[in-house]
Design a binder for these strands. Structure first.
Lengths: 218, 218
DNA sequence: CGGGCTATTGATTCCAGTCAATACTCGTGG
DNA sequence: CCACGAGTATTGACTGGAATCAATAGCCCG
């Protein structure tokens, strides 16, 4: 949807390689970025250097909106795979907005979506057990892949257990343990970064795994 | 004269009484609201009826932006005190935006601020202990009061322990216990809803309270 | 092959949730 | 006025889930 170019305005594309930083916290804000292809992570880094991952943007997602209000980026974006980004200089956005207000509206909409996503994530974090968080994470990832036309049942994780943990508010070992547990429960198969989803409907609504017994069927 | 009207556009004001709902989740989206006076809470309600509080908006904060992208509000806003809100019909925003793009920019900015706040909250939830969360909550509240010209050291909580817990991802009893602990540590005084802040600088940066000893001085 | 990173698995600790009892506040009506 | 009850807050005892500490094993790449 956010193929802004159809509106008659051309934007520059940039390519980034794995590990490359798109912008850093505290750096002066000048542009928004829309993911055209590839896979990134955005994170906040606190005074002590702990990084908290706030999202794994993919095609169609927007980066850098948290820079608008203070004129400096508040977060950091790093490419996890080679990626292509559409650069939208904020000045241009403002200019173009004068002639085509729908364009600014489009940005409002994407921001609104991002805010809502962030809130859901927040709620999940508060009210769900570690198991439910991991289950939902996999389920959501599956949905996002599906939306982009990839397989929703077989995919490769682009991030480490560590990063998943830093996204879900869990320790690395907990993520690992829970993935094993989900596998033993027959809901998924895990082999390192390769994932198969067997029971998406169970993952989506899981609250807690039944206390471990040998039952494979309920 | 509230902020936006200086731009030559008049907006309707509405008043709400304590407990009154401004909008409900899933209700069709039509307007944004800016708090002119008073004190509200916004929350998400899940399938099971659990409510997760996502914010306590005060003067200058914006409500309803999460409704833009799906044309229905995704959250619920309730007044905690009598409050006055500026109603900005979204249609009008779009109209006015055509003549005055700065106006839409203003909205972008407030949304950006809200997104950043939400993220910080999210990080706090992931990486801080219960004690640090409560300490930061009080410290932040203090700052917000100060920004509005009220006392930053003496104030009255408008929300219950239950609501604080639902905002911070903690049980009500935990909030209560920690406030007592902070009091015994000499950082604040608590008497039901009345709060005095004694050591704001400690609250702001606290990670963990030292294991309880009888020492009143370090 | 060796070194570094990542993942799995086990043992133990401890923070915060749950359950439960008591006390405080406030509004209403006998 | 006091009694009563509903909502809110404090405090204690106990439990359990996830973190931490720690050891081993698998993977990738020079």
């Amino acid at each position: 949807m956010p193929c802004f170019e159809q509106e008659g305005v051309k934007f520059q594309h940039i390519k980034v390689v794995p590990g490359q930083r798109v912008f850093t916290a505290a750096q002066p804000f000048d542009s928004l970025y829309v993911v055209h292809s590839g896979f990134l992570k955005t994170m906040l880094v606190d005074e002590l250097g702990n990084e908290q991952i706030v999202g794994f943007p993919m095609k169609g997602d927007i980066l850098g909106v948290d820079g608008i209000h203070r004129k400096t980026y508040q977060s950091e974006a790093v490419a996890m795979t080679s990626s292509e980004l559409v650069v939208i200089p904020f000045k241009t956005l403002v200019e173009v907005g004068k002639r085509m207000p729908e364009f600014e509206l489009e940005v409002l909409t994407v921001m609104s979506r991002e805010l809502a996503r962030q809130r859901r994530q927040f709620v999940a974090l508060c009210s769900l057990s570690a198991e439910a968080r991991v289950a939902r994470f996999l389920s959501t990832l599956s949905d996002r892949y599906a939306a982009l036309g990839y397989s929703s049942t077989e995919f490769t994780l682009r991030m480490t257990r560590q990063e998943i943990g830093r996204y879900l508010g869990l320790a690395l070992v907990t993520v690992s343990r829970i993935m094993q547990a989900l596998q033993h429960a027959g809901l998924i198969s895990v082999d390192q970064k390769a994932i198969s989803i067997h029971r998406p409907e169970v993952l989506r609504t899981m609250r807690r795994l039944p206390p471990k017994t040998g039952f494979a069927h309920e």
